[in-house]
Simulated scan of single mutants.
Amino acid sequence: MRAEDLDEKFPVVKIDSAALDAVRLLAEHRLNGLVVVTDTSETPFAVLPASQVVRFIVPGYVQDDPGLASVVTESMADHAAEKLSGKTIRDMLPKQRQHIPVADADDTIIEVAEVMARLRSPLVAVVKDGKLHGVITASRLLAAALKE
């Protein structure tokens, strides 16, 4: 089985899209992450794991001292996502460019799994002829591996 046989259509966001829109997309569709493309192409620019987005709703002082999480009031916690107001996807990506979890459409399941494992990504973008063809999630990859 090849990557293109396993991939599926998946929500994609542009790098300068509103961060809150991405959070809504992640939450509403219960996604593990999103593929980020540049505004001018369908070429994957990055993968934004949901865990990275969650990090942005945790106040910096709590990240510095996790023990402070217990002193954050419910009313403060209820408004945590508001921190993302006015921010873009670009603002949530690491400043240092990281490897993009990408597989070619003709890669095998093992090749896709290797990329996913090495880059610790919940999903891999599949490209064909330089364009995004689809996405393979970790759960979809595992299901396919169990069938073989």
Rank of each mutant, 00 (worst) to 15 (best):
K14P: 12
V102M: 01
F45Q: 08
T40W: 15
L119G: 09
K83A: 09
T73C: 02
R118E: 14
I57L: 11
T108L: 08
A46E: 14
R97D: 10
D106R: 06
S85I: 03
G33M: 00
T73S: 12
L123A: 03
T108W: 08
G86T: 04
A46Y: 14
A117K: 00
H99Q: 04
D64E: 10
P122R: 00
L48S: 12
K83P: 09
R118H: 15
G33L: 00
A103W: 06
A117F: 08
V36H: 10
V124N: 07
R90C: 13
I100D: 01
R97L: 08
K87D: 09
I57R: 01
Q63M: 13
K128R: 13
P44Q: 00
V35L: 12
P101G: 07
D106T: 05
A138N: 05
G33W: 05
R30M: 08
R120M: 06
L123I: 10
E114N: 13
G33E: 02
T73P: 11
A103S: 14
T40Y: 15
K95Q: 06
V115A: 07
L123Q: 05
V72E: 03
D107S: 14
V35D: 09
L48Q: 11
V112Y: 14
V36W: 10
V53D: 02
I109F: 11
I57W: 10
K131A: 09
E74A: 05
A50L: 10
R118F: 15
V127P: 15
A105W: 12
E82P: 11
A125I: 05
T40E: 14
G33A: 01
S70C: 07
V115L: 07
L141F: 14
A46P: 15
D78L: 06
V72S: 06
S51G: 10
E28F: 13
H133P: 08
L142Q: 04
K131G: 04
V62A: 04
L34E: 03
L25Y: 13
A50P: 12
P11G: 03
E111Q: 07
T38C: 12
V37A: 14
R55S: 05
G134Q: 02
R24H: 12
G86Q: 02
G86L: 03
S41D: 10
S85L: 05
L48K: 11
